[in-house]
């Protein structure tokens, strides 16, 4: 069954996917470590702690130390996953990730819940809208956000197999489950959900399901949409973006500042190729606030309606 025909009824936060997958990985490989910074419960590593205490470290509320400690572990052959919230995992430990993880290209994973606007009622201080942009600018770093539970599990599994730094971003809140267990995902390769002739929509993370709904609506209106889940924004799948350029029109959708995230990564490819037009839908270079998640998306135009409107305006 095509993903467009599915009725999306079940929802799950992608932080749950990390929590489940990391236990599986940890059991398979004793070198997989989790480093917590006191927020294990909300980052969903409680099962790992219970079942694999020998592979777990909790450094308390000390993120900078967590990143450096992970680097030290990695030099001995461990594969540490530092588990925290995206604001801290990208910014509080940014320099430690740069100096001690990315510069020596060590095998450390930064696995972060509370990506984008998803910690909605926590307010602007806890909503990471710039994390992927910051980490995208560090050499050697891979930057990933899965769209749902299943894809996130697969991407976490693959991240563990890459010998180098990876930043993984998860949702705090529940998002619709899009994919079956059988779907495969490759880091650095866009997942094509639908081919089309008129316009391309490239989305990632918790906005993929919105892009999917918008695609259905546009198809009803007679617009042929090509839809990509760009779960990896670095390295960006250039080939996939170039293919979209054949349509001349691209809309990017992301739960991240429109600066430096998916929209920017796609625009860089488009600008270098010298043809085509991009419209970026995402956080409008403004901080969030405490509000329902859907309200925050709406305040930034990250909605099905706005994607449809933007597409029609480009045609």
């Amino acid at each position: 069954m095509s993903i467009l025909e599915k009725t999306l009824t079940t929802k799950k936060a992608t932080r749950e996917a990390f929590g489940d997958e990391i236990v599986k990985l940890g059991k398979e490989n004793k070198d997989i470590y989790v480093i917590d910074v006191d927020i294990a419960k909300s980052c969903k590593t409680s099962t790992f702690i219970k079942e694999l205490p020998h592979q777990h470290i909790n450094v308390g509320i000390a993120e900078q130390n967590a990143a450096g400690l992970a680097a030290g572990l990695a030099t001995t052959g461990k594969i540490p996953f530092v588990s925290t919230y995206a604001v801290f995992g990208s910014l509080r430990m940014a320099e430690q990730i740069r100096q001690e993880v990315c510069y020596p290209n060590l095998n450390v994973k930064i696995a972060c819940s509370h990506g984008g606007l998803t910690p909605a009622n926590d307010g602007g201080s806890h909503q990471a809208i710039e994390d992927m942009g910051v980490l995208r600018s560090f050499p050697n770093m891979t930057v990933i956000m899965g769209a749902d539970y299943q894809s996130t599990r697969k991407l976490v599994e693959q991240a563990a197999k890459i010998n180098g730094p990876v930043y993984l971003r998860f949702t705090r809140d529940k998002v619709p489950m899009l994919y079956d267990e059988t779907e495969e995902f490759t880091i650095g390769k866009a997942k094509k959900l639908k081919d089309g002739k008129d316009i391309a929509i490239i989305a990632n993370g918790d906005t993929v399901h919105l892009a999917l709904e918008a695609t259905k609506e546009l198809e009803k209106q007679g617009v042929s949409v090509k839809l990509l889940d760009m779960h990896t924004i670095k390295p960006i799948d250039r080939e996939a973006v170039v293919e979209c350029l054949e349509l001349g029109r691209i809309i990017t959708v992301e739960d991240h500042n429109i600066l430096n995230g998916l929209g920017s990564a796609v625009s860089e490819v488009v600008a270098e190729e010298g043809k085509g037009k991009v419209k970026r839908i995402g956080v409008q270079d403004q901080f969030g606030q405490s509000a329902p998640y859907e309200k925050l998306l709406e305040l930034n135009g990250i909605t099905v309606e706005n994607i449809v409107r933007t597409a029609n305006a480009m045609l």
Binding site: G68, G72, T75, G77, E100, P104
Partner: peptide, 20 residues
């Protein structure tokens, strides 16, 4: 054994090695 240069960070790496 580990790249350093930004002050304050190396000891954390040493702690990671010692835990391992």
């Amino acid at each position: 054994d580990i790249s350093t240069g930004s002050l304050g960070q190396g000891l954390s790496c040493g702690v990671g090695m010692a835990i391992a």
